[in-house]
Amino acid sequence: MAFLDDSRSTGHLTGEARVEDYLALLKPSVMQLVVFTAIVGLVVAPGVINPIVAIIAVLCIAIGAGGSAALNMWYDSDIDAVMSRTLNRPIPAGRMTPEQALIFGMVLSLFSVALLGLATNWVAAGLLAFTIFFYAVIYTIWLKRRTPQNIVIGGAAGAFPPMVGWAAVTGTVSIESVVLFLIIFLWTPPHFWALALYKQSDYGAAGVPMMPNVAGNASTKRQIFGYTLVLAASAMLPTWLGFAGPIYTAVAVVTGLSFVLLAWRLLRTGEDVAMRRSARTLFNYSLSYLFIVFFAFMTDNLLARFGGVFA
């Protein structure tokens, strides 16, 4: 693996990178979800953490996520240049060199892990380090261009943040944090495959073996529906295992059924514009779904802790 490969530069450098270009490397839209799920893990974890330390922990997770995103953009700069939704990123647009992104990503990654370990504990820091490694190396470098299961396996990277937040408080990994991990892990395939259905020409041009390009639309829609059924059932685990109450249960049921309904509608569409429209609707809903479910879980636990709602 050549970490400094000039051949990965995809455009003519038009000038010095700006602050906003470095911010773009962090993938702020993705980071919002990462940070939020990490906060949920931190807030619901049993035990007490100093508020300042909690803020530092969240910042470390955000910085680590941003560092891994920068490494992803460094390695993927060649395919980003041929995909419509990524061609304006700093490297393919020529506003930054790959070397700048690589150094930026490495510095952020190392700094976030070291600071999290010093501020909280080394279990949390180790989980964060593994998360960064998993996203930057296992997913980006190894899986993404080799298998249509890239999102299924690589989705683990996005599922670790609530475990990191939990470990920052407790220094351990528990069944509760594992369940939160599982929900995000199972959410990832229908979320990204819905995107791939209406952006498959992009992935095809870039040579990325996303499921619709390899297995076809019909197979992808069936797999989306299957994963959605498993996700909706798994979202009930907090209730069945006794660490969520009526608010979460009601929200999980309603949002899960809505997800299944949208996946079913997608499954029943043909191979035309209606399919792409249905896939986009499912993709947009999936973004809201995870925020709503995790917010309900956090609310339910906070009310139980401080208000005795279902204690």
Rank of each mutant, 00 (worst) to 15 (best):
L127S: 06
I183C: 06
N72S: 09
V152F: 12
G307E: 12
V178W: 14
A24E: 11
Y75Q: 05
R145G: 11
I132F: 03
T228L: 07
L128Y: 03
V230F: 12
L262T: 01
Q100T: 13
L195Y: 05
A168T: 06
P98Y: 08
S177F: 01
A156P: 02
F181E: 01
A69K: 10
G165C: 02
L180M: 15
G94N: 00
F295N: 08
Q100K: 09
N213F: 01
M163D: 05
G242E: 06
G11T: 10
A24S: 14
L267D: 11
L23W: 14
A232D: 11
M1G: 13
V273E: 15
G158F: 10
V43L: 15
G165L: 04
A274W: 00
T10A: 09
T10H: 02
L197D: 05
V164G: 05
A65M: 14
R305K: 15
T172P: 00
T120G: 03
L23F: 15
P90F: 12
A57T: 13
T281D: 10
A233V: 10
L110Y: 09
R280M: 14
T147W: 03
I55M: 15
S109Q: 10
K199F: 04
T269I: 04
A205K: 13
I141H: 06
A159H: 08
L186H: 11
G245T: 06
V273D: 14
V273Q: 14
A274E: 10
L290A: 00
A57Q: 11
T120W: 02
V178Q: 08
A93E: 13
G154L: 10
T170R: 05
Y248T: 01
V48T: 11
G204Q: 13
S109G: 11
V44M: 11
N88D: 14
A218P: 00
V164D: 05
P90C: 14
V208G: 06
T97E: 07
G94V: 04
M106P: 00
V260C: 08
L266H: 08
A93V: 13
R265A: 00
A57H: 12
N50K: 06
I184S: 05
S278F: 00
F36W: 15
A296K: 04
L302T: 14
I56M: 13
T220E: 06
A69D: 11
S278E: 15
T140W: 08
L267R: 15
R95Q: 10
L71C: 09
G126I: 10
S288D: 00
S234K: 04
L115K: 01
T188S: 14
